[in-house]
Design a protein around this nucleic acid. Structure first.
Ligand code: FES
Ligand code: FES
Lengths: 144, 144
DNA sequence: ATAAATAAAGACCTATTTATCTTAAATAGA
DNA sequence: TCTATTTAAGATAAATAGGTCTTTATTTAT
């Protein structure tokens, strides 16, 4: 469903959010450890998230990554997916036709459309808050 | 959702089915043309479909590919997807955890589970018959 | 038998994604 | 100001997915 980069992006963002809810900054190597991801690749992804104002980065001692309470409440999964994977998941044909078009539908268009609608609904309506709270309370996990 | 190979596999199979419903064999270059796919790559995919007994191939003049009426009625999308992409779509964690496990769910597990169930339902319950009939009657398309 | 038409098989190439490495920039604190 | 700590940026490398090419095997018709 998502690229590896996007998977890491979601996990990293949620881990940062979990820490930020406790007013803690967190540095790259600890993020990578928490989500079981390659450090340097994670750095690239966090750069992109920072450029997209989803996370905030700061350099130097006591630096690291954080997310504002405001952002945790307003950003949805959709925002991360758009920032990393673009809009393909929202628009593309399930069989790879050049365009997903109601007027020349592929064989699975109608069935795929409703599944895609569910995916979009999930991405649009799932907030970072909700997911990071669950992480904090220990009912969900970011690795193994 | 599917690999490129799997997309081609589904389209090729449906085109062959459409032809077989009219008792026509069809040769590789015509399949590739009908589904707008690279010929040599399509050949590889058809080989795999033939090994998995989803399509039938025959060599030599008047050779080509076909599917039995029986197969058209009994095979589902699921069979093609399993043959080409394996079972990952049916089992893997939406965030790439090593295992999708109810007992240590990732943050999107519960939401993803229901979407995945819909996908599986679609793949298990959509027969080649149904889709190739729609193609034959011109309400769906395999390219552009 | 021979030639033509077809798919099968396997080696090869290319593009994209995933991942790493090296250097630079910024910041905090001594 | 100097050093340590952190992210940013960009070049590079490795792995995977996507795609091609060449040769072989099989079949049909002449
Ligand atoms: S045309 Fe294929 S999903 Fe819409
Ligand atoms: S654990 Fe991630 S989808 Fe089940």
């Amino acid at each position: 469903m998502f690229s590896k980069a996007c998977e890491y992006a979601i996990k990293a963002t949620l881990h940062i959010a979990e820490q930020s809810l406790q007013n803690k900054r967190i540095i790259l190597p600890e993020i990578a450890k928490a989500i079981d991801s390659p450090v340097a690749f994670t750095a690239k992804i966090l750069q992109q998230l920072a450029k997209n104002k989803i996370v905030q980065s700061s350099k130097g001692p006591n630096g690291g990554f954080s997310i504002s309470e405001q952002a945790i409440q307003t950003f949805k999964l959709k925002d991360i997916v758009l920032a990393i994977d673009g809009e393909s998941i929202f628009t593309e044909c399930g069989l790879g036709l050049k365009k997903c078009d109601e007027n020349s539908p592929c064989p699975i268009h109608h069935k795929f459309k409703s599944i895609r609608a569910e995916i979009i609904d999930m991405l649009e309506n799932t907030s970072l808050k909700e997911l990071s709270k669950q992480l904090e309370s220990g009912v969900t996990f970011l690795k193994i």
